[in-house]
Amino acid sequence: MIFIGGISSGQRELNYKGSVVICGGCGSYGRYQVFMTYMYFSFFFIPLFKWNKRYFVKMSCCGAVYELDSQTGAAIVRGQDVEIQERNLTLIQAGKRNPYEQDEFGEKRRYKVCRHCGYQFDNDDFEYCPKCGKSLKSEE
């Protein structure tokens, strides 16, 4: 008797129609791209059941990746109209924003980055991070 089956992993992009949000990491406007990852067992190349479902959100602006809580992710899979809020997200990977982006006059501008939370901003006058509130002065 030949047994053809196995365990594998999969990823699926979920249909989330949220509005444009301001990214907590880079401060730009972006959209949430929601994904589900899972493990599955297949028998004769037919997937039978899935487990270890995890939900992730990738920002379209900077590429930051967040893990989405499982209740909100499952509601999106069921097609419910839910709004993803910041409290539902846990940062997994910080986004990559070009620190030398051009301003409205075409001149390059250097962004400062908070060493505590990774937030990027272009105002040199701040002594405290506008996102997390921690001191921006280097500790000596």
Rank of each mutant, 00 (worst) to 15 (best):
F121Y: 08
S9F: 11
V34M: 06
V65W: 05
S19N: 09
G18S: 02
R109K: 14
Y16E: 05
K134D: 05
G18K: 00
G18H: 01
Y100A: 15
G133H: 02
T72D: 02
D125S: 13
G73P: 01
P130C: 04
M36E: 09
D103I: 01
I76P: 00
Y128I: 13
K17L: 13
C62R: 00
G63C: 01
Y66E: 07
S42F: 06
P47G: 06
F43G: 08
G63Y: 02
C26M: 03
I76M: 01
P99H: 05
T37Y: 02
C114T: 07
Y100C: 15
N15F: 06
R97F: 14
G18E: 01
Q11T: 14
I76W: 00
R109N: 14
A94F: 12
Y32V: 03
N15V: 10
E127I: 14
F49D: 07
C132T: 00
N52V: 02
D103K: 04
K96N: 12
H116Q: 07
G63H: 02
G79S: 04
Y38I: 07
R78H: 07
E140T: 06
E86K: 12
C26Y: 04
Q80G: 06
S70K: 09
E83Y: 03
L14I: 04
K53Q: 11
A74P: 00
R54D: 06
S42W: 00
D81S: 08
K17Y: 08
F43M: 12
G79W: 01
P47L: 04
Y32W: 04
F35H: 02
C62F: 03
L48H: 06
N52F: 03
L48G: 09
I46L: 12
P47T: 02
N52C: 09
G133R: 02
R87N: 11
Q85G: 13
N52T: 02
K58R: 12
F105M: 13
G118Y: 04
S42A: 12
Y38A: 09
S60W: 00
E13F: 05
E139G: 12
D81H: 08
G6D: 04
F43S: 11
K112M: 13
T37D: 10
E127K: 12
L68A: 05
V77P: 00
G118P: 01
A75T: 01
N123V: 08
C129I: 05
G25K: 05
L14D: 07
C23F: 03
C132I: 01
K58S: 10
T72W: 00
M59C: 15
A64I: 02
S9N: 14
L14H: 03
Y38C: 11
K131A: 14
S28R: 03
G6F: 06
G24E: 10
